[in-house]
Design a protein around this nucleic acid. Structure first.
Lengths: 167, 167
DNA sequence: CTCTTGTAGTTCATTCACTGAACTACGGCG
DNA sequence: CGCCGTAGTTCAGTGAATGAACTACAAGAG
C-alpha cells in the first residue's frame, strides 16, 4: 500500500500491520512464498511485477523479518508464516464474493487429509491447522484455461504442501 | 493497493480480494466503519486522508457493495461485515510483532463477556463470535497519550460494540 | 582463456496516483 | 438574505509504479 509514509494512528495494530504488508504487491509476494517460490526471477515472472518494485519489496520484507534471504533464496520466517491466517481469510472472502463457481483453491490437513473450513479448522481432527501441515489443491472454481503454460505455474497448480520448495 | 489495474492472476481469490480492499487506505476506512464512523467528515478527520482519495475509496466501496450509502451515512453491508476476520487477523499479527506492551485493543463476546482469542473464539462459550456481538476495549498496549483529544476519537477509545453508531 | 547462458538485480524516462490546500454546492437556520 | 456546517470537487506539485533496456557476476562449454 505504500503508506502515506506512516499512518498517523499509532494506536492501531491494523495500521501497523498495513505499513508492513499493505503495500501494493506485498501480499502476493508472500502468497507465492507460501506456494514455494523462492527466487527473484520466479517471483518476477509469476507476478508480472516490475523488477525494480520487486527488489524494493523483497528488501523491505527481509528488513522486517518477514522473509529470510540466504543462498539467493527468499524464504518465509516464523513471523512471515504467521501471516497465513490473514491470507486464508482474504482468500475465503474473495472466494465467497468473486468466485461463483466455488473456491479457487481448497486446503487440507496433511496429517489426516481433513478438509479445512473457512476459519482454518480441520473437519476431521477439529484443530487449527498450522500452515506447514496444510496442502493446497485446485478447487472447483479453478480455471485451468487461464493458467500460464510455464513450468513454474504448472507446478503451482498441482496439489502441494505449503512452503514446499519447487522441485 | 491501487492495483496495477488488475492483478493478472485470475485464478487467485487473494488477488481478487486485494483488488477490492488492497488499495491504500481502504482497510482503514473499513476499520473505522466497524468502529462506528459513518460520515464523510469523520472518516476524513479520523484518518487524515486527503478528501479526494476518500471520495474515490468510498465510491468504490459502495459500488462493490462493501458499504451502503443512504441519508449521507456510510454503513457496512453484509459483505462488508464479512471482512471482519481479515481485520482481526491483521490486528492480531500487528499486536504480536509491533506492540511489545500487549494488544492495542481487546475483543469480547457481548452475550457472555468472554474474551476472544486471536482466532476470534470466545473463551467462555467457545464459539466463533460474529462481529455484531463483539465489543472492543482498549488493551494493555493502548497508549492514551497518543490519542487525539477530538470528540470522535474520544468516543472511539472507550469500550464499544462493533458497528454501533456514534452517539 | 574466452564465449555463452542464466540469474539477479539497476537505471531511467514516462505515466499515474496520492497529497494538500483551496474552492464549490447545498441544505438548514435566524 | 446572510451565515454556517457538511460533503464533496478542482488542481498544481510530488512521489511512486511501470516497462524496457542495461549491468554485474557466476557457471559451464569449447
Amino acid at each position: 500500500m505504500a503508506l502515506p509514509s506512516t499512518y498517523a494512528d499509532r494506536n492501531c495494530s491494523l495500521a501497523r500491520a498495513l505499513e508492513i504488508v499493505g503495500e501494493r504487491w506485498t501480499l502476493l509476494i508472500v502468497r507465492d512464498a507460501f506456494f514455494g517460490i523462492s527466487r527473484f526471477g520466479d517471483f518476477a515472472t509469476q507476478l508480472g511485477i516490475p523488477r525494480a518494485v520487486l527488489t524494493n519489496r523483497l528488501k523491505f520484507l527481509v528488513q522486517e523479518d518477514v522473509l529470510d534471504h540466504t543462498d539467493g533464496e527468499y524464504r518465509l520466517t516464523t513471523k512471515g508464516v504467521q501471516l497465513w491466517p490473514i491470507l486464508r481469510a482474504m482468500m475465503a472472502w474473495g472466494d465467497d464474493h468473486y468466485s461463483p463457481t466455488g473456491e479457487k483453491r481448497t486446503f487440507w490437513h496433511t496429517t489426516d487429509n481433513g478438509r479445512l473450513d473457512p476459519e482454518g479448522r480441520c473437519s476431521v481432527c477439529g484443530g487449527l491447522v498450522p500452515a506447514a501441515d496444510t496442502r493446497v489443491d485446485p478447487g472447483p472454481g479453478f480455471d485451468p484455461g487461464n493458467t500460464n503454460p510455464d513450468p513454474v505455474s504448472a507446478l503451482l497448480n498441482t496439489p502441494r504442501r505449503l512452503m514446499e520448495p519447487l522441485a
